[in-house]
Amino acid sequence: MNYSWLSDPFYQEYLWTGFVNTLWLVAVSATAGLALAVLTALARLRGPRPIAWLASAYVTVIRGTPLLVQLFFFYYGVGRLMEGVPGLRESWFWPIVREPFFFGALTFTLSVGAYSGEIFRGAMQSVPAGELEAGRAFGLSPWQILYRLWLPRAFQIGLPSLTGEMILLLKSVPLVSTIAVMDLLQAANIVRDETFLVYEPLLLITGIYLAIVILLTLVMRTVERSFPGVRATQGRWLPMRRL
């Protein structure tokens, strides 16, 4: 094993940028994606028929096509189309919107929105109807029932599955190396191309991914445990004290 290249500031810089970009992509897509997931679940459960239908079509398309194809579709297809839109090139957000990073974040956000939207829909449906009815019986408005009772409970129930989705998201990120985003894999590829070392850089980023996943799991588990009241384990409710 030859890791002498690690002392080269150029490679350090690449790896660091790749690490930061990977985390950024996860953070941005997870945040925007989860917001989209809540909206998707709501649209499917309570939306007027056309909106519910639209949400369901969105979920079907995103879940029914390969992520890499979606990434290419947005980067090469939509990206090229956008160049032709008059005025767009002069607008202030053009520098953001022409970056491959943007297309990666867009693709992953849509993906998280669809997959987690389904998880969230299931979680919302498994909140016992009586709890929401009690909200109605005490005069809470539909909006209050949603954000004070329904959504917190759905998060609580869906959290373990959502953790899984976040891990899948992290592991999808290397796909962006195909559209020239400097992520961890891209950094490793550069090291390989320049030093002709194949395994060493791959092994290094594998370790980094693993470390992030372990950290993420620990954080999410803490969040699950610190959720007030109960913790869901495979659909069963266990009191905190028995854990």
Partner: peptide
């Protein structure tokens, strides 16, 4: 106000949290 057969307490709120939810927000 109503008391239900299945209690229908809100599990993510403490006993006090359950009791003051409607006074606070309604």
């Amino acid at each position: 106000t109503m008391v239900f057969q299945q209690f229908n307490l809100w599990p993510h709120l403490s006993a006090l949290g359950n009791v003051i939810e409607a006074p606070r927000h309604v």
